[in-house]
Design a protein around this nucleic acid. Structure first.
Lengths: 241, 241
DNA sequence: GCCCCTGTTTGACAAATATCAAGCGCAAAA
DNA sequence: TTTTGCGCTTGATATTTGTCAAACAGGGGC
């Protein structure tokens, strides 16, 4: 029994042995953070692999005075895995969005247990592939869709996730959502207005989908862009012999 | 000695044993393709891992009648690694750009050798991390920069790669470059014009950088967006004790 | 050498998105 | 309750990017 019991059963660790898990968490931290705390900055080198145990974390990046959000993370997402593995500088910064509990595992441990534990190696690869594919989806979303279309698909995704009873609350400030969707807050405001014509109503952070069919007809969600992937790699295609 | 001698020394295979390499290439193909041949389509499932042995390949994706280029590959890039590992559908399509020779390794082999060969596992992870990071750079480039800025940085990158003697030839059609940089051909044309004010001259596919300092001052290249990464993961930070 | 095809450029215009400034509204602090 | 602050919205406008159509240019086949 360790401080890290809560992550022991995560897909990333479920398959590995007790000694390997102990070695992995040696020198690891569990730490609580208030909202809006900077965790890492792009350009720094990767000393830890992070796991979100509770709360939420924003990955973002900047250039030439501009800034954009790349991802919103929830339990039990990991971040900075690629930089950890390559022992390379972070490409993104991270900050807490809400009060959060994070688990920090020394990069060195990740690299060395990777060598000795095949199950862990497989889990790492699967997690990495998941992150990579998420990034490709993100890129397609950005390059192939307009701002209104991105918002429409964001709403469809949450509509499906949070029960399809026709409404949900935005989990983040609108300004952050705007950055995540690659637009300005003003433009997001107008995009919400535009979606009134497609059966969406907004009141503060409460989103009501009056006519799901119309919204979906407009958004044209595509599994190759919008589907959320699990970390677990299927050993065989499900459903097909 | 096998048909696959030419890839035996690639970083991806260099560290693995002869038997493992033989097992990996069992059932593999080397195949020549003319230009503009469709290789795979997004949504299909991954039967092979591809390696570009010669020529060049375009990764692209479409949605709702639109299409965009995601990457241009050269020897000895791999593609579709993440889908191979997760046994999941491709998120991108691929076609040859020029006459190309491709090596195709059955996904099943990749997955099974991954289990038994630690060196191969490490190489796979490193390759995957490289692709992931490239995708993040791609996304930052797209979200943080205007069309003209993306073009300027593209030129700076090639200026540095192809010898800094002040000129180089575009390796692809302008229409494809436009798609890669996330704009229309017409807009690319105008972006080239705009760069005349920053020391760049264009004549057909010949790019001449008259005033590199001015171009670079405008482009503001950033290693966290524009640097090209090697697949090899450093075992320790170089230069620092 | 000439023609045709295709890719590129240019121009005029429209749509999408950003910017700047002001006003609004709600919630926390006084 | 009132005030204040901050995030959000709205309006006016500028910039960026896309669309459509036409002109242009160069290379391959005849």
């Amino acid at each position: 029994m360790t401080r890290f019991e809560e992550i022991r059963s995560l897909p990333l660790f479920a398959g590995i042995g007790d000694e390997a898990f102990a070695a992995l968490t040696r020198g690891a931290y569990v730490q609580n953070f208030p909202p809006a705390v900077d965790l890492i900055n792009e350009g720094e080198t990767a000393d830890f692999l992070y796991i979100v145990a509770s709360g939420s974390v924003e990955l973002y990046a900047g250039w030439n005075g501009r800034e954009t959000s790349v991802a919103f993370l929830r339990p039990y997402d990991t971040f900075i895995l690629a930089a950890t593995i390559k022992n390379a500088p972070y490409l993104m910064s991270a900050r807490t969005m809400t009060k959060s509990r994070l688990i920090m595992i020394p990069s060195e441990n990740v690299r060395s247990i990777f060598e000795t534990d095949t199950e862990f190696a497989r889990a790492i690869v699967s997690e990495l592939a998941k992150c990579y594919r998420a990034s490709v989806r993100n890129l397609k979303n950005e390059k192939l869709r307009t701002a209104v279309e991105r918002l429409a698909n964001y709403i469809v995704k949450h509509y499906r996730r949070e029960g399809e009873d026709g409404h949900f609350d935005l989990p983040v400030e609108k300004r952050k959502l705007a950055a995540r969707l690659g637009m300005t807050p003003e433009n997001l405001s107008r995009a919400f207005s535009a979606l009134k014509n497609h059966g969406v109503e907004v009141e503060g952070s409460r989103i009501t989908i009056r006519e799901p069919e119309r919204l979906i007809a407009f958004a044209k969600p595509d599994p190759l862009i919008d589907k959320e992937e699990t970390r677990e790699s299927p050993r065989a295609p499900s459903g097909i012999a």
